[in-house]
Design a protein around this nucleic acid. Sequence first.
DNA 1: CTCTCTGCAAAAATTTTGCACTGGA
DNA 2: TCCAGTGCAAAATTTTTGCAGAGAG
Lengths: 140, 140
Amino acid sequence: MDIPKELRNSGLKATLPRLRVLQLFQEGKKKHLSADDVYHLLRDEHIDLGLATVYRVLMQFAAAGILSRRQFESAASVFELNQGEHHDHLVCTRCGKMEEFVDADIERRQEEVARERGFALHEHSLSLYGVCAHCNGAPA
Amino acid sequence: MDIPKELRNSGLKATLPRLRVLQLFQEGKKKHLSADDVYHLLRDEHIDLGLATVYRVLMQFAAAGILSRRQFESAASVFELNQGEHHDHLVCTRCGKMEEFVDADIERRQEEVARERGFALHEHSLSLYGVCAHCNGAPA
DNA sequence: CTCTCTGCAAAAATTTTGCACTGGA
DNA sequence: TCCAGTGCAAAATTTTTGCAGAGAG
């Protein structure tokens, strides 16, 4: 989608920092980025914006539904483009590789578990941690 | 189990701070406690220990397998007694109530998902967020 | 031209570490 | 007694906020 338009739809002005941050995610070279990652990637492109601005922009995007914020095992949160369909993550604890997946059975059972306990389920977070085939074949 | 013994089994001396922290979890009034929770609960009992010590003790316990560290949506990690069997969490986003559950179907599918993608699964983290029956019946 | 947005720097919140002193075994 | 353990304070990390100036519409 047209980036400035996507911003306007969210009631946000199309400013340079916002355009660049969104572009970074839409390029898709790396899907999961922390605030600090974004900050440094943009600095590498000689786009100097403050870290505070990066945080503000990321949170505005998350509030607008453009990005989702995720919390994995490490201390810092990461953000990723929200592409409509929900998905969970499978993370290699050796090389950091991250795969996304959706499993209909798991999704369905989550609903059932919540319903059995009288909860109205709004969202969930599932992360699997293991060692990927590549790292398994060539242990460190 | 006998608390000093449990500590010695982990190669830790039975010191007052450790005994009190472990006792707090074993009383079970509240299962999930952040470092700050522990710090204040003990201060309420006029047991003055430093916050740094609380962190150290909690991390030693986690390393020893006595406690597990969890990361929910909020910024701070919480710790809970590790009672052997793994479980996941169902959290009410309105009142904070937390229920634990294990679902065999979900566990099995997680293994399958990981295997299909060539990962050796080591652990996972699943949290469901919703509104519990009580809060649903009496919306704020 | 106005009102949002940004940069900077300072504050907050959470967690970790250095160091001299204390206390369990 | 001896070394692990503790308290305190300072540092590190991640994130948020105040404020004056800059820039989009």
